[in-house]
Design a binder for these strands. Structure first.
Lengths: 187, 187
DNA sequence: TGCCAAGTGGAACACTGCTCCGTATATTCG
DNA sequence: CGAATATACGGAGCAGTGTTCCACTTGGCA
């Protein structure tokens, strides 16, 4: 019964254990936590972790995929409920920033690892870019955004700023920068 | 004769060799190049490199210090010659961005290494922050900048954006984002 | 010249991501 | 129920990193 995946029962169990362990370790140690630690936390060996997630980035993507989905799905709702498209833009960007800054190291996770970057970047592009694009288009139509900056440019800038902001420093607030950026879009 | 440093002649020679080697390797391999490679290029042992530069960040700072100085010194000149303080702001930021993007990995060099970050960050704060602060103040006085964003916030945002932009991607241009940011400052 | 503190080199350590393959076991079939 | 087999597991091991340590060399001075 259960999943129709051809996987063996223990394999499925281990995959779940790994996802849970990774989520826990990412919270306590940051996304850069050693693979060994995640394997240990899950109570499996190195071989197992690499069997299920060929690269650490795959694991990261798997762990956060549903949160990214939630962020993507919130877009249209915000656009419908906010008092203006630009307000929706602000709210949605806030959501994304929240997501990024509450996951220690998420945005920077792939820094050292080009493949990892591609995976995470790809997830954002696939799920979030269309959403931001819609919001941006609506805001333009309402005359609230003059700049013709592409959504990609904006999405990436936000990611980069949050990545840099991960360093703890009481005097710095990434949200201020991002607010400035959005103001810049109004032209 | 020569420097009044109490250092031995061979020590001074090695320090110079290391700086030259590091500069060369940074260009060809990026700022993240292995320490061993720099030592080999300079023809010295591991012990020597760590004697002169206790951490890789110290080496990075030493290599780029005079370029940072040049950037700092260009500030007042730009302010005097540009047709408006905001134009000077743009030009100066361009200068800084040029510096960051032409040094592969410079802005991200310290990413993995908190001490390294502090060193580089400290250099920028010490040399560049006052310059940006002056330009920003002038632009505000001329009514060209409405936002009261602190210079620190802006400087760091630029650094973070360039750090993120280091990943090669023909579709992304950090300068667009930074331009947007400056537009945002005009309020 | 001879001495010795300053300086050097590179082996060794601790840590990382990742691979490999002998072993264990879930599942299936007789 | 008991074997046969494909599937999955564990962890030792490899390659590469930054950094430390200390026996050895050498510049500069008396």
């Amino acid at each position: 019964m259960a999943e129709s995946t051809g996987k063996r029962a223990d394999a499925r169990r281990n995959e779940k254990a790994l996802l849970d362990a990774a989520a826990a370790v990412f919270v306590s140690d940051g996304v850069d936590a050693p693979v060994r630690k995640i394997a240990a936390e899950a109570g499996v060996g190195m071989g197992t972790i690499y069997r299920h997630f060929p690269t650490r980035a795959d694991l990261v993507v798997a762990v956060y995929r549903h949160q990214v989905d939630a962020c993507a799905e919130a877009g249209p709702a915000l656009l419908a409920s906010a008092e203006s498209p630009f307000a929706a833009l602000r709210s949605w960007v806030d959501l994304f920033v929240d997501f990024l800054v509450t996951k220690r190291g998420l945005a920077a996770a792939s820094r050292n690892d080009p493949d990892g970057f591609a995976a995470l970047h790809g997830l954002f592009l696939e799920r979030l870019l269309p959403v931001l694009d819609d919001i941006l288009a609506a805001a333009r139509e309402a005359g609230e955004v003059k700049s013709d900056v592409p959504a990609y440019q904006l999405l990436r800038a936000i990611g980069d700023i949050c990545a840099g902001a991960e360093r703890v420093d009481p005097g710095y607030d990434a949200r201020i920068t991002i607010g400035l950026l959005l103001d810049g879009c109004r032209g």
